[in-house]
Amino acid sequence: MSTVLDEDMGAGAGQGAGASRRTALSLHRTELVLALVAVAGFGVLAATTGGNILQPGTMQAVLQFLAVPIVVGLAQMVVLSVGQMNLSVGALTGLCAMAAASLMADSGLTPWLALPAALLVGALAGLVNGTLVVLTRINGFIVTLATMSVISGLRFSINGTGTYQDYSPGLVRLGRADVLGLPVVFLVAVATAVLVWFFFARCVAGRMLLASGGNPFAARLSGISNDRSVVLAHLLSGLLAAVAGVLVVALSGSVNASVGDDLLLPSFAAPIIGGVVLTGGVVSVLGTCLAAFIVRLVDVAQAQYGINPRWVDLVVGAVVLGAVLVSQRRGKGSS
């Protein structure tokens, strides 16, 4: 008679709770290992290329193109925190980028209006995702699969396959500028990561998301609405995808509807390597950022050594599986 409320509520919570417990224990070590790998990788790369990547220009390129992967990884991490998935992340990044570019180029809005509007588009799309999941009780994977298709279409409907250019020289200048050697877009990504960290670590709403993901049963008994958590997580995911879209607009100077096509699978790779579990309840902003950095290093190494770019995907695949295996093994050891 030990579990009185067992069959009526939150069945399955126990399993999820066990998994996230192990991960909680090993999370800090995962972050530590990733940090070591990142530093070591960077060091080896710097040494073997004769300090080439430490040149200001190269370094800037490394960090510039790290911004979008970080934010997209965070966008996926936010929904993973409640045990959901968001397949529309990549398409939404593209839609928001196209929306911002179109508002500037076609409607002649200033970036000050166009970029917030793009963020609003992302948040609304996220809100729709979350609401559909809660209302229909259909698996979030399927709901976002469907909305991904819709969003992809919308993305193309803005300007067909055409490209927007010269929408805002000022914005693009800012996107390529740097402060003390650090690219502005990278700083924006870092600031976003800090905000996301603060949200999950300190804000009541963020803690509630984690409680819902970690043990829906306990969350419910503590007066937390798990439905609201799901909606909020999707909304934030959409907002972050929009931030990534805005970064693309600022960074590249020209956007077309294919933006975001190759972001979906990497959006999963970063949090998964970073130690986030699919069952929810555990997030790691630092781990996600470090994982994005490591994946970026693989890219850089490929460029520096002139390796066939196809090796990158192979290595990333191995890293994903390896990271999960290592953290699982450690989790088992410590429980």
Binding site: S2, T3, A17, A218
Partner: peptide, 9 residues
């Protein structure tokens, strides 16, 4: 309950 009602992390 036995541990059921806590958020592990």
């Amino acid at each position: 309950h036995q541990e059921r009602n806590l958020v592990p992390s």
